[in-house]
Amino acid sequence: MGAAVVLVFLVLSVTFNGIVTPLVILSSLIFVPVGALGGLFVSGEPLSISAMIGMLMLIGIVVTNAVVLLDRVETNRKNEMPLIDAIVEAAKHRVRPILMTAFATIFALIPLSLTPETSSLLISKGLAVTVIGGLLTSTLLTLIFVPVFYSIVGKRKKHIKEEI
Rank of each mutant, 00 (worst) to 15 (best):
L127Q: 00
K92D: 15
P116D: 14
K92V: 11
F145Q: 11
P111F: 10
P116S: 13
I98T: 05
P111T: 01
V153Q: 00
E117M: 12
L140H: 10
T142K: 11
L99H: 09
S113G: 15
R94D: 06
F107S: 10
H93R: 14
I123G: 13
L114G: 00
L112P: 04
I98C: 05
L136M: 06
A90P: 00
V146A: 13
R94A: 10
F107E: 02
G126Q: 06
I98Q: 10
F149P: 05
L127H: 03
G126H: 02
A108M: 07
L141K: 07
H93Q: 13
F103C: 03
G154R: 00
F107Y: 08
T139V: 07
L135M: 12
T139M: 11
L140D: 08
T101A: 08
S119P: 12
L135V: 04
K125N: 04
I152G: 05
M100E: 02
L141D: 06
M100R: 02
P111S: 01
T130H: 00
S120N: 08
S151V: 09
P147Y: 11
V146M: 13
I110W: 07
I132V: 14
F145V: 14
V95P: 10
F103N: 01
T137L: 05
A128V: 00
L135A: 05
R96P: 08
V129C: 04
G154M: 05
M100L: 15
P147Q: 08
H93F: 13
E117V: 06
R96G: 10
L141H: 09
Y150W: 10
I98D: 12
V153A: 14
T105E: 01
V95I: 15
S113W: 10
V146W: 13
G134L: 03
G154N: 03
A108G: 08
L99D: 10
K125I: 00
L143F: 02
L143K: 05
G134N: 00
M100N: 01
V146G: 12
S119A: 13
P111I: 04
I110S: 05
R94F: 06
I132M: 07
I110L: 10
S119Q: 10
G133K: 00
F145S: 12
A104N: 10
G126A: 08
T139P: 07
I132A: 06
V95G: 11
L136G: 05
T105L: 06
P116N: 14
L112C: 07
T115E: 15
T139H: 11
H93T: 13
T118K: 13
L122W: 10
H93S: 15
T101H: 08
V129E: 09
T130G: 06
T142N: 15
V153F: 11
R94Y: 09
R96D: 11
E117P: 06
S119L: 08
L135P: 01
V129G: 04
K155W: 08
Y150H: 11
I106G: 07
T130F: 02
